[in-house]
């Protein structure tokens, strides 16, 4: 597996690699190298099946991560290619010409994360959400709890007492390093 990473490294800069399992290698590459690498993998290696493709929101880093999982079924090994992209202007090159199912993945990521893949056929067509106006809901800063509260709420008459508060009040818990 490591030799294979070296083989990749010889062509494209590998930022980091992590042998997560004997059958699963993870590598990170720069966005500029993503499409060339994926194209090379698809046409020149056994890793031509795209099992899975999705995004992770690293909001604190100001980045999205695109994760492509490719599998070489003959060798029974998978390669996870991770690419960080700018969260402020999230655009990535489409891979729909390499793998037809990428159309749906890219359509979904546009809808759920707001990441656009110019040239991908169904960009902007609703997949799961009709008439959604809020920020893309899979972004970390979309507050599902608040949304659920507003959209569904609790049935009337529900009240909850926090056990810690009840004990603190009943027994007069205080603090003496601070005035209250």
């Amino acid at each position: 597996m490591n030799e294979f990473v070296q083989e990749i490294q010889a062509r494209f800069e590998v930022l980091w690699s992590n042998p997560q399992r004997p059958d699963l290698m993870q590598i990170g590459v720069r966005q500029v190298n993503a499409l060339p690498l994926l194209t090379w993998l698809k046409s020149n290696t056994g890793y031509f099946i795209l099992n899975h493709f999705s995004a992770v929101d690293w909001i604190e880093d100001g980045e999205f991560q695109l994760t492509y999982l490719l599998t070489d079924y003959a060798a029974r090994r998978s390669l996870m290619v991770c690419v960080r992209i700018d969260r402020a202007a999230p655009t990535a090159e489409s891979v729909h010409h390499l793998w037809p199912e990428a159309v749906t993945y890219e359509q979904e990521m546009f809808e759920m994360f707001g990441i656009s893949f110019p040239g991908s056929p169904r960009q902007g067509v609703d997949l799961l959400l009709e008439g959604w106006e809020d920020i893309p809901p899979m972004r970390r800063d979309f507050d599902t709890a608040a949304f659920a509260e507003e959209a569904f709420g609790f049935r009337p008459g529900r009240t909850h007492t926090n056990p810690r508060d009840r004990v603190a009040i009943a027994f007069g818990q205080k603090g003496f390093l601070h005035d209250h």
Binding site: P163, R164, V167, A168, A170, F171, G172, Q173, K174
Partner: peptide, 12 residues
């Protein structure tokens, strides 16, 4: 994190 212990602690 239930806080039951704080009741039994004399100093809470």
């Amino acid at each position: 994190e239930c806080g039951i212990c704080t009741a039994a602690c004399p100093a809470h």
